[in-house]
């Protein structure tokens, strides 16, 4: 395991390509970065710049093709699928679309995340799911189905699902994109507060300028290359 000072995510000269043969196209160019425990980092950049690709690499949804990418101290360069699946259980993933399971209630959706951790009894799982929904302010909506919830509420359920198992890393891919200003703000604040409480690191991909103030650090991505920027530069 990693000690408290080791980075949770450590990216070292990672490159990534799509396609093969003449259609092979490089989308990431020797990206290097690190995220420490408890940090909130925002990753910005225009669409097509490779943000989501980087996020899927960190989220263990793809194996790393070139360079070294360590998540919680585990090397993901050419990692096998089995290892990736296991690593994913330590990550809370929040998507642009909420991607809740329509056949399940809010509480059951949150609990799906805990079902992956077999050492809990079914009662404990239920209690923890309800506590988590309370934390995102949706306790009264626990038995509602996703289609009965508003966009902001759905995204809050998704956050509850991502955070309920206290993951060391939370990855969020434009979680506010489909939300109005106020709900977007609420969602990000809840995410930041809960991540801090649990000591999880947060990596947030966004081009929403309204939420940059929650970040400890902002990374800028352009054409597959990464640079650090000052918050003031972006806001100005």
């Amino acid at each position: 395991m990693t000690s408290a000072t080791d980075p949770i995510i450590s990216i070292d000269h990672v490159s990534h390509y799509f396609g093969s043969g003449r259609l092979r196209k490089q989308v990431l160019y020797e990206v290097s970065a690190r995220v420490d425990p408890g940090e909130v980092v925002i990753l910005m950049g225009p669409s097509g710049s490779g943000k989501t690709t980087l996020l899927t690499l960190i989220g263990a949804l793809r194996s790393t093709q070139e360079g070294s990418l360590k998540l919680l101290g585990e090397e993901m360069y050419k990692a096998r699928n089995k290892q990736l699946v296991r690593l994913r259980r330590n990550i809370g993933y929040i998507f642009q679309a909420h991607n809740l399971l329509n056949a399940l209630t809010a509480r059951q959706n949150v609990q799906m995340s805990l079902d992956l951790h077999p050492n809990l009894t079914s009662k404990e799982k239920k209690t923890r799911s309800l506590e988590m929904l309370e934390a995102v302010g949706l306790l009264d909506w626990a038995n509602y189905y996703p289609q009965e919830l508003s966009g902001g509420q759905k995204q809050r359920v998704a956050i509850a699902r991502a955070l309920v198992s206290s993951p060391r890393v939370v990855l969020a891919d434009e979680p506010t994109a489909a939300l109005d200003k106020q709900s977007g703000r609420d969602v990000v604040e809840i995410m930041q507060r809960l991540a801090r409480q649990r000591g999880s690191a947060v990596l947030l991909v966004t081009h929403d300028n309204r939420i940059l103030d929650v970040a400890d650090r902002i990374l800028q991505m352009e054409d597959g290359r990464l640079s650090t920027v000052q918050r003031e530069e972006v806001i100005a």
């Binding site: 989220g59 949804l61 699946v85 296991r86 690593l87 994913r88 259980r89 990550i91 993933y93 998507f95 679309a97 991607n99 809740l100 399971l101 329509n102 799906m112 995340s113 992956l116 699902r161």
Partner: peptide, 15 residues
């Protein structure tokens, strides 16, 4: 119909 949901489950670490 549930493809996106299933993909989400995989991203969460379901086999």
């Amino acid at each position: 119909d549930h493809l996106a949901e299933y993909a989400t489950l995989k991203a969460m670490g379901y086999r």
